[in-house]
Nucleic acid binder design. Structure first.
Length: 273
DNA sequence: AGCGGAACCTGTCGGC
DNA sequence: TGCCGACAGGTTCCGC
């Protein structure tokens, strides 16, 4: 579920709360999490006694840097949560990993649907695994020219191109629907047909939506919770996602839902061309 | 190479 | 109330 703003919200809180803290004990209840590689069997041994030196984000991945020069890579999948508690915390049903810190706090990774992943690898290897990803949408590397270059010759609908993490890293279903709506671009348009003028409109809109959502603590549509266990308020700012049958805020025409690549797309057929 | 569709797993919700 | 199918914010894999 969590897209860039949600992951960013989790990351910054974990960084603020756990940077410099030492892991004194760890529990792993499941090793077979889904996306990418699984939790290593010797995970507990390798993290115990290390300190968290930094917490960063790349796309939808959380990178927990450890003093052992290893990186714990975390992806929240659809229902993953990474929440801070204290040592009195009692394990709940879908908790898969609990890290206990010297200062009395703990950090719990839970994921009902188990689409998420937690991996541990030497920093160089962890970073190489993420090298396939496209530009960070909030960086200057993501601009109309570079974006057009990336989607050149792509016949997939623009909706699906924006979800492709190799093209741009961190967007998911909600923000893609919202950005295309604000830009007035139909999600059905072939990516390669997007003009320079449209890219010049769409790219800043994407950046703006992501920034506003980060400021609001992300979007909780169903499951998402921040590292403090809170819901994200940007759900109140959504204009099309989940609004099937409701009136378009621009023209009053009904918002429709279609399926693209097996996933729901919400848009206004009148405003988006 | 690029694309569509299925698969992964659990929970929830709507319809009958 | 209960059962059944559809669907969920993500990614990967397989076949064409």
């Amino acid at each position: 579920m969590p897209e860039l703003p949600e992951v960013e919200t989790v990351c910054s809180y974990i960084c603020k709360t756990f940077k410099g803290e030492e892991i004194v004990r760890a529990e792993v209840f499941r090793f077979d999490l889904r996306i990418g590689t699984s939790v290593p069997q010797d995970f507990i041994k390798r993290v115990t006694g290390t300190k968290i030196t930094d917490v960063c984000r790349r796309g939808k991945y959380i990178l927990v840097h450890l003093s052992s020069e290893e990186i714990m890579t975390v992806h929240l999948g659809m229902t993953g949560r990474f929440i801070a508690h204290d040592h009195s915390y009692k394990r709940a049903k879908h908790d898969h990993i609990i890290l206990y810190f010297k200062g009395g706090k703990c950090l719990v990774f839970s994921d009902a649907r188990r689409f998420g992943m937690v991996d541990l690898a030497p920093a160089k290897i962890a970073l190489e695994r993420l090298a396939f990803m496209g530009a960070e949408p909030l960086s200057d590397d993501f601009n109309p020219a570079s974006f057009l270059q990336k989607i050149k010759g792509r016949k997939v609908p623009i909706k699906q191109a924006l979800l492709n993490q190799e093209i741009v890293a961190g967007l998911g279903n909600i923000y893609v629907c919202e950005a295309l709506f604000e830009a007035g671009i139909s999600p059905l348009r072939a990516a390669e047909k997007i003009t320079l003028q449209e890219a010049e409109k769409l790219v800043p809109i994407i950046k703006n939506i992501l920034q506003k959502s980060i400021a609001a603590g992300g979007t909780t549509f169903r499951d998402y919770r921040s590292a403090e266990g809170k819901k994200g308020a940007f759900v109140n700012s959504l204009l099309v996602y989940g609004k099937e049958g409701e009136k378009c805020v621009n023209c009053g025409h009904k918002i429709v839902k279609i399926m693209q690549g097996g996933r729901g797309t919400f848009f206004c057929e009148k405003c988006q061309r």
